[in-house]
């Protein structure tokens, strides 16, 4: 247990001192503020860009618009930045040869994988939920009294989807000695999820739904129980990814 805590601490120090945590956290805070503000002021902004004489009729913004911004920004910008920040998890250590000392000092190989996963998930958790909190507070402030359905479930789904991408990235980063390898591996995985959308039958199990059905959950168009299968697949992918990363790293020559 002690090596696990020690190495996880080392990972967190690394994210701190190399400014990676700072970058990730700042971006998520910025997104947190942007979501409600964009939703609130979008009609006014659009109006000011319109040439004179032309009028557009937009419905007044609602809290649902603010949450729509949240899910759009976190999936498109937030996750993207997180993946890039975490892409070198293992491969950077391979490239520099820094693990040789740790392993020859008796650090169990599986601890390396578990610590890497723990540290990156912690960072993701902190950034994601801070962003959520900021958006939540401002949305409540701008649209007093308005409520949306299933907010907790919906945000939890996207959070788990993020953890799944991190775990897939961990396999990619363990497999390849170059950080682009891990990045491409994860992109390939996402591309496959998008391709699976084409088949209706398989799409019922597609974990991608956890990241793109959120608004339907909030507006009540979709009941959370419909996403049971994707949720199950998502959790399975996380567990299998961690196990396979451990197995791959056991065989890896460093």
């Amino acid at each position: 247990m002690r090596p696990y805590i020690v190495f996880t601490k080392k990972e967190l120090i690394e994210y701190g001192r190399t400014y990676k945590f700072f970058i990730l956290f700042t971006i998520f805070i910025a997104l947190g503020f942007m979501n409600p503000l964009t939703a609130k002021f979008m009609p006014k902004i659009l109006e000011s860009f319109m040439p004179e004489g032309i009028e557009i009729q937009l419905p007044p913004p609602s809290s649902l618009d603010s949450w729509a911004q949240f899910f759009k920004n976190v999936t498109q910008t937030g996750l993207f930045v997180a993946i890039i920040i975490f892409s070198g998890m293992m491969s950077r250590e391979y490239e520099k040869g820094t693990l040789v000392n740790m392993i020859t000092k008796g650090l169990p190989r599986q601890t390396v994988i578990l610590s890497k996963f723990t540290a990156s998930t912690l960072l993701w958790t902190l950034s994601y939920w801070t962003c959520f909190l900021i958006t939540h507070i401002y949305t409540m402030y701008f649209w007093k009294g308005e409520t949306v359905l299933e907010l907790a479930t919906s945000t939890l789904f996207l959070y788990l989807f993020g953890i799944m991408l991190i775990s897939v990235l961990l396999i990619g980063s363990t497999l390849f000695k170059n950080s682009y390898g891990g990045l491409l591996f994860t992109e390939g995985f996402i591309a496959i999820l998008f391709l699976l959308k084409l088949s209706h039958k398989i799409d019922n199990y597609n974990p991608l739904q956890l990241a793109n059905q959120n608004i339907n959950l909030l507006s009540g168009n979709l009941h959370p129980s419909k996403l049971k299968s994707p949720l199950f697949v998502c959790c399975t992918v996380i567990i299998l990814s961690i196990i396979s990363s451990i197995l791959i790293f056991d065989k890896k020559q460093i």
Binding site: P3, E14, G106
Partner: peptide
């Protein structure tokens, strides 16, 4: 190792502490 590589963001003191803790 022939070209020893360490975590550049640590001090020598911190690195030895990390090694010691891992060794138990």
């Amino acid at each position: 190792p022939d070209v020893p590589e360490f975590y550049n963001y640590m001090t020598a003191y911190e690195y030895l502490k990390l090694c010691g803790e891992i060794t138990g």
